[in-house]
């Protein structure tokens, strides 16, 4: 049904998107918690940095990544010299770029549901003998589970569609960094490949729709499972 070219791009996209989302998840929960609950100096700065990928052109993000994580960059060079790890121009690099671009969306979804958690419930847990971490894991985390699900799907969808930062940072290498958007771009640049480009575009839309529907279904199920009964959307 799918051509080898399409299969390769699809599988690579799923791998890059999946790793990007999972890798971003725990930092996103941590940062959301800090932003929703923390009171510390320079909070506005953290907020700004986290949200930058939403407003800064993706090419700029890709370029900054190339400078920082490239073979001669301040982070990339030691990584290569000491551990032999190269990020630029690899699929791992594509995942880093996708993760960074998806990060603010994920933080927003989690933060939104964190702000809806009734802090009086956390107080009640404290009076029942739960310490800070205990309260987080036994009360806060389950209560924001729907938000986390939404954040994962949103982040995954964003990572799948990542183009500008990816192509700038890791280029367009077949089988390594040519995800679906990059493959589509390649086809769009190739004379006479309109039909293939159309198929790939359709495939991208289908994958995105599946992610969206899955998010809705899972979020609803989670909400019901934790007893919120759909009355509080994340």
């Amino acid at each position: 049904m799918l051509t080898p070219f399409e299969t390769e791009a699809l599988l690579l996209s799923l791998k890059v998107g999946g790793i990007a989302t999972l890798g971003a998840l725990i930092p996103a929960i941590l940062i959301s918690y800090l932003l929703a609950r923390g009171r510390f100096p320079l909070k506005w700065l953290l907020d700004g940095i986290v949200h930058a990928p939403l407003v800064v052109p993706p090419v700029v993000i890709g370029y900054l990544l190339l400078i920082g994580l490239g073979p001669r960059g301040p982070i990339g060079a030691p990584l290569k010299d000491w551990f032999g790890i190269t990020i630029a121009f690899t699929w791992q690099g594509a995942a880093v770029a996708a993760g960074i671009m998806a990060f603010p969306l994920m933080v927003r979804a989690i933060r939104l549901s964190l702000e809806q958690v009734d802090m009086r419930l956390e107080q009640a847990a404290t009076t029942l003998g739960a310490g800070r971490w205990d309260v987080f894991f036994s009360i806060t985390l389950p209560m924001i589970a729907p938000g986390i699900v939404v954040s994962i799907i949103l982040g995954f969808a964003r990572a799948l569609g990542e183009f500008g930062a990816t192509i700038t940072f890791v280029a367009n290498i077949p089988g390594e960094t040519r995800t679906m958007p990059l493959a589509l771009y390649t086809l769009a640049q190739t004379p006479g490949a309109e039909a293939q480009a159309g198929r790939l575009a359709l495939l991208s839309v289908v994958v995105a729709l599946i992610a969206l529907i899955a998010s809705e279904v899972i979020a609803r199920k989670t909400r019901r499972a934790i007893g919120l009964h759909g009355e509080r959307a994340a």
Binding site: R120, A124, T127, L228
Partner: peptide, 13 residues
């Protein structure tokens, strides 16, 4: 301190 709150504050999940 066993605190019984005005609004119960049961854990919904």
């Amino acid at each position: 301190i066993g605190y019984v709150f005005q609004e119960g504050r049961l854990f919904p999940h």
